[in-house]
């Protein structure tokens, strides 16, 4: 939490709490429609499934133990892999981009950042659909590769793990660029210059000066990309085949297709556990205030 918050407190804020009640309706709403449903999911994850798909309120660990089954385990591991690869690619693309933006003329920086963020604010379904057009059998990607003579016949691109990762990188790249930009912007160019003056190689400047000094931004960006990637549903649903399921798809499948609510709830809580671990890591390691919410 930012320590400088104390300075923002108005003097009137400390002596009385006369208007505190204004917060009550909103808080009640969040408790009733956010907290209670989550607790309900938690409770159901320890219940058992009735013969016809309903819930039998008997305490059991069975749903969590079921997740150890290779079938579910595979989806879990696969999701972690997709999210990790996505994070790595976002970093490799996002770092140069953030660096260039942070070192461009000051009046261009907000414009460039806006350009990076703008696609993020458009409909996610639509953006994913755009990739379906590009990647399908007679899509633009295949046309281009054929025209360039790189391939002799169209590749199967859509409905593959590659397509899922492309879609995830596309969706969450802005999350990587923002915190990295903040970190690079804070990095004193003099330090980099000093390294050059001392005859550091390109690689040494990067690994011993730039990366260590921007570490909070790197960790922050990676976590901000990892969180939505691991929980994604639309991307693997539209771009992935039946075998590229992720946790989000498993949850939807258990709830709406199999109608095994207790198992679906257990999967949800495993996902929530992973996400919460990442969030805790974020608040511990990353600089506060670099989140995607700043400057919205």
């Amino acid at each position: 939490m930012p320590p400088d918050d104390v300075a923002h407190i108005t003097p009137t804020a400390q002596d009385s709490c006369r208007s505190c009640w204004l917060a009550v309706p909103g808080l009640l709403w969040m408790i009733l429609f956010f907290l209670v449903p989550l607790l309900l999911v938690l409770a159901i994850s320890f219940a058992s499934r009735g013969t016809y798909g309903g819930i039998v309120w008997e305490f059991t660990w069975a749903n969590y133990l079921d997740l150890l089954h290779p079938l579910y385990g595979k989806i879990l591991v696969q999701s972690l892999c997709y999210a990790t690869v996505t994070t790595a690619i976002c970093f490799l693309l996002g770092f140069p981009l953030a660096y260039v933006i942070a070192r461009s003329p000051a009046r261009w920086q907000p414009v460039l950042l806006l350009l990076v963020m703008l696609p993020f604010w458009t409909n996610f379904l639509v953006r994913t659909y755009a990739w379906m057009i590009l990647l399908r059998h007679d899509g633009l990607a295949n046309h281009l590769l054929l025209a360039l003579g790189l391939i002799t016949e169209p590749l199967e691109l859509l409905y593959t793990p590659t397509a899922v990762v492309i879609g995830l990188v596309y969706g969450y790249l802005p999350f990587m660029v923002l915190p990295l930009y903040v970190a690079v912007e804070r990095l004193d160019p003099v330090l980099v210059e000093a390294a050059w003056d001392l005859y550091a190689s390109r690689w040494a400047v990067l690994t011993r000066v730039v990366v260590p000094l921007t570490m909070p931004g790197i960790v922050g960006g990676c976590i901000l990309v990892f969180i939505p990637s691991i929980g994604s549903f639309i991307t693997p649903d539209l771009l992935g085949g039946a075998r590229s399921m992720m946790i989000g798809n498993l949850i939807q499948h258990e709830y709406l297709v199999v109608r095994d609510w207790p198992l679906g709830s257990a999967v949800s809580f495993v996902l929530m556990g992973i996400v919460m671990a990442a969030v805790v890591l974020y608040y511990r390691r990353a600089t506060p205030g670099d989140g995607p919410l700043e400057g919205r």
């Binding site: 969040m30 429609f33 956010f34 449903p37 999911v41 939505p228 929980g231 949850i251 949800s268 996400v275």
Partner: peptide
């Protein structure tokens, strides 16, 4: 911040269950 970071799938199923 919690509602903004937890997977949307989860928020959806939780509300549906409620």
């Amino acid at each position: 911040v919690l509602p903004l970071v937890i997977p949307e799938v989860m928020m959806g199923v939780a509300l549906m269950l409620l």
